[in-house]
Design a protein around this nucleic acid. Structure first.
Lengths: 334, 334
DNA sequence: CAGGTATGCTAAAACGTTTTAGTCTGTCAA
DNA sequence: TTGACAGACTAAAACGTTTTAGCATACCTG
């Protein structure tokens, strides 16, 4: 069964295709189509269930009402929640979102950008990785709105929305120190990405400002794509062999692995072993004792991203790049 | 900067558009284009970075190499993990996935189907809700491959992939009974959806088969979209006012709310109060004590879905509907 | 009553592909 | 010498829209 085209509607209504098109696009008034014709055509469209072919529309107009969202991994709750919020907000403004995960793989990221490009998405929201600067620059050169989020790319001059990773980290460490902790570990990853580096810098600076010597042995860098069992083993080793009284996990999945490790070596989180995780997670609230976490204001991040995108989409000229740094919230538990 | 078109390539290579098209689509041999020309054109394409406009392609061919995925909520980890797996597997076969959440809202679901339809996606993977049967039937009537998953729609004759919800539930209850439990509660939701009903039926049947009287007071139906605080309050009430020694939560987010409720009333999970959750969650492994869960084999579900889709996409004639019911795994912890 | 303007509508080009139905050479068999 | 056929390539239609430019007709204005 072939689906209806604008031509079928035009024939049925005994008017031209142009007229139908004007009516569909709300230009009937402006183009002085008579009330009678408008009514008639609308009625036929209604009854027949005709929906314009978006592909033809895109081909003609050059835009798709689709925003491409490129993230690290949709199965990570930080991203899936952000994605959901963005989708929701975009949807309300008539935009659809296509999303896809890079898995921190440069080639996949490049391919995704190409695929979005060839599908003519109207704008890009990207949580970038190092190595795709050129591709992003090309998008910008072609005049596409691009918003980076979560992690910035220093060489790229475009808008960015992200949490204040440095201060979040700094405050957490300061909090440990205020509690009298002296041997503070950091469990981080080896992906070379702005926001992870900032979290690391915050850790270092806080120690420094408090006159505590930075000790490389207390910093564990986990390889990104490794098996969780290996991660747990490495963390166990750290906790068993070093004198540690507090630890900051730089992502929530690392914290989860860390808590599993603690369980296995039967070490309890409590007064003499403090834990803070970056990015909250349901498990933390439920854990005994409850685990403190740095919350990123997802709602606000999503809202800001959408605002920036939409303003760029509606303005003719290029708007200057904006950097929005959103403060985090340290939720202390138990 | 306008992007290149096939015409630009044709001009550069001093051949016709047709020839370029043949080469791009691997039909050069078949259409007897000379080796020399093939080489020349390929080189130019390579150097210029030309990528065919997929929209024009879709308009002409009528297919998009895109599969639409409609789920309840991408921020729910069951769905986000399935989505990720499906995306991955589809990607390897040259298909892209567009996904969107219905939030159990019939209107949104219908809109999504329409939007996918007008974007000419090649196939649909849907975790459906009641009330969109007609729309799905229309897709089928138009000859589109449609695979339902997670929950079936009895009135629709198309392929379905899902876990064995009934038996999963039955086994959990049987397990409680084998441990000597007598007062077994069920915390479920009021969404009227196959897989929830099956889980409920399994609960009921297991009680019955073991000669335990079904007690409506031990079944709590939570309203789908309500605030978590209300959910927790209702669960607290159930646990405080009824004599209960075991409970099956019908989804993982209900289990999480339930565990929060238990914490608030300081009731411990243990020998005299057993808990099983449907769908595993990181929090369960970490909880003290660890919480038992019914695991759905996500990998297998995703793989089966993709297989069914691809076979339908490649076969000319309509393949008969297949129903694949995948056994779950009851993971008993602590 | 000429000329301007508003009203109501439409023909046809354009977007970038794929594909059908050729055209034009040259070779070879009869 | 003819004509059949293969080899190498191409013109143009088609996909379903949007939009520009323009055509009538009627009405007003000075």
């Amino acid at each position: 069964m072939k689906s209806l085209s604008i031509k079928d509607i035009a024939v049925k209504a005994n008017v031209s295709i142009t007229t139908v098109s004007f009516i569909i696009n709300g230009k009937a008034k402006e183009k002085s189509i008579s009330e009678a014709v408008i009514e008639k055509v609308k009625k036929i469209i209604e009854e027949s269930g005709y929906k314009p072919n978006q592909i033809a529309r895109s081909l003609r107009t050059g835009n798709s009402n689709i925003i491409g969202l490129i993230i690290e991994d949709i199965s990570n709750s930080f991203f899936s929640r952000i994605a959901r919020l963005i989708e929701d907000k975009a949807y309300k403004r008539g935009y659809k979102i296509i999303y896809s995960s890079t898995e921190n793989n440069i080639d996949k990221a490049k391919e995704l950008i190409n695929m979005f490009k060839s599908r003519k998405v109207d704008a890009y929201i990207i949580s970038p990785i190092k190595g795709i600067e050129e591709d992003i620059q090309m998008l910008l050169d072609d005049g596409n709105p691009v918003i980076l989020f979560d992690r910035n790319l220093p060489d790229i001059n475009t808008s960015y929305v992200g949490a204040d990773h440095f201060n979040a980290s700094y405050q957490s460490i300061q909090n440990f120190i205020d509690q009298g902790k002296k041997n503070i570990a950091l469990v981080t990853t080896d992906i070379n990405v702005e926001q992870i580096i900032e979290r690391y810098d915050g850790y270092k600076k806080a120690l420094e400002d408090n006159g505590i010597k930075y000790d490389d042995n207390l910093v564990l860098k986990i390889h990104f794509n490794q098996d969780e069992s290996d991660t747990i083993a490495q963390i166990k080793e750290l906790f068993e062999n070093k004198k540690i009284d507090a630890v900051l996990f730089v992502t929530n999945y690392l914290a989860i692995s860390g808590l599993k490790a603690l369980k296995q070596i039967d070490k309890k989180v409590g007064d003499d072993f403090a834990v803070i995780a970056y990015d909250d997670h349901e498990a933390f609230e439920l854990h005994t004792p409850r685990i403190s976490a740095i919350q990123q204001p997802l709602e606000e991040i999503a809202e800001t991203i959408i605002k920036l995108i939409l303003s760029r989409l509606s303005s003719k000229g290029k708007l200057p790049a904006e950097e929005v740094i959103i403060p985090t919230r340290l939720v202390l538990r138990d």
